[in-house]
Simulated scan of single mutants.
Amino acid sequence: MQKTNSILDNLTFECKHEVRPPIDKEVHSLYDYALYHDLHNMWRGKKGDEVWQNMAVYYRIAAYNGDYKANLRLQWLLETKRVAVKKPQTEVYYLNKELEKTLPATAMYKLYYHLDSNYGVKTTPGGKFVYLRKAADMGSREAQLNLGQTLALIKDDATLKFRLDLREQLLKCATTQGQGEAAKWLGIYYESDKKYQEAIQAYHQGVKSGNQQSAFKLYQGFDKSKKHRLNAGIIQDLERSKRYEMIGDYLFDYDFLKPTVPDLDEIVPLPPAKLPPWDGKIAFQRWFEGPSPQKPSDELMQKLAEKAGLDWQTGLPLKK
């Protein structure tokens, strides 16, 4: 990529976190039920099959009652055609308008994301970075990662230090918001700069956010026989290394489910904390291998659908 004035001009960054509002428990029970069956369909499911078509109803009703997790998941299922509708672009457009009410920064990033596809969002040449910069400034962790990586690719020696410093700020902000890929790249940046403790903390956060490569880095780092650069900043601990390896293997094998490890500090806290007992499973794994959440009642579906002006059997707007 060549130097692009639209991305470098007047570019400063103040880290802002996007506030994720609480979701009503009744509403979220629709998402929990749908997600369980949605994810169990990911390996063998066919696009447009009965499972995804049925789960879309629960996601729709939850999304239009303020559940941003249901909204984002349904947008992805529509974008990938796992949920089949005649005009996916139209449904995604209205879902994203709804998302603006709860996660405006993420909704802005979704507009940027849709610029290169046929989803009704257009701009002038080079104008796409306006969406990206605005989303990052508003607090979108995905936009902060994307903007940081974009800055690194610009071919301009005169601005190199400025861009790398700014990229570090963007990656740090995204990392603290749970963006696993940002944490990995931040760790790599610190590792190359011999800031090993900072690298270890970044990778640890990356594992929490579901990044398999971060787990692999720490698995190597805590085992000095692997002869990794991180060895210089770590006291050998083979049990810690083994736990990161086991978690990393699970994240790799089940990447298609996008698991995260918010319970990481209960399994392998950073030194000097002692390692607690562990049964070898992460919380996501126990949930996925466990029984389905209770199916929401028809009465709850009807109540929430009516509140949002939807048909409770399809999740689509009532015809006027």
Rank of each mutant, 00 (worst) to 15 (best):
K3L: 13
T12F: 02
E14Y: 07
C15R: 10
C15I: 02
V19R: 03
V19S: 10
V19K: 11
P21H: 01
Y31E: 11
Y31P: 05
D32I: 06
Y33I: 12
H37I: 02
D38K: 07
N41D: 14
M42A: 15
M42Q: 15
G45Y: 03
G45M: 03
D49L: 10
Q53S: 13
Q53N: 08
N54I: 06
M55H: 08
Y58V: 09
D67Q: 14
A70G: 09
R73V: 10
R73T: 12
L78S: 06
V83K: 00
E98F: 08
L99M: 07
T102Q: 13
A105D: 09
A107N: 06
M108T: 05
K110E: 07
Y113A: 11
H114C: 03
D116P: 01
P125Y: 01
F129Y: 15
F129Q: 09
Y131E: 00
M138I: 06
R141H: 14
R141L: 15
E142W: 11
E142N: 15
E142G: 08
E142Q: 05
N146R: 12
L153S: 14
L153D: 15
K155T: 14
K155Q: 15
K155V: 14
K161G: 07
L171Q: 11
L171M: 15
E181Y: 04
A183Q: 01
K184L: 13
L186M: 08
G187P: 03
Y189T: 10
Y190G: 08
Y190I: 12
S192D: 12
D193Q: 14
Y196A: 12
Y196F: 15
Q197N: 14
I200S: 02
H204G: 04
Q212I: 03
Q220E: 10
K224L: 04
K224A: 05
S225I: 08
S225M: 10
H228C: 02
L230H: 04
A232Q: 08
G233E: 11
G233V: 04
D237Q: 14
R240D: 03
S241E: 09
K242L: 03
D249Q: 15
L251F: 11
Y254E: 11
F256L: 09
T260G: 06
T260E: 14
P262R: 06
D265Y: 07
E266N: 13
I267H: 00
V268S: 02
P271L: 06
A273P: 10
A273R: 10
Q285R: 06
R286P: 05
W287Q: 11
P293D: 06
Q294W: 08
P296A: 07
E299W: 09
M301R: 10
K303E: 04
E306I: 02
A308F: 00
L310T: 03
D311W: 09
L318T: 04
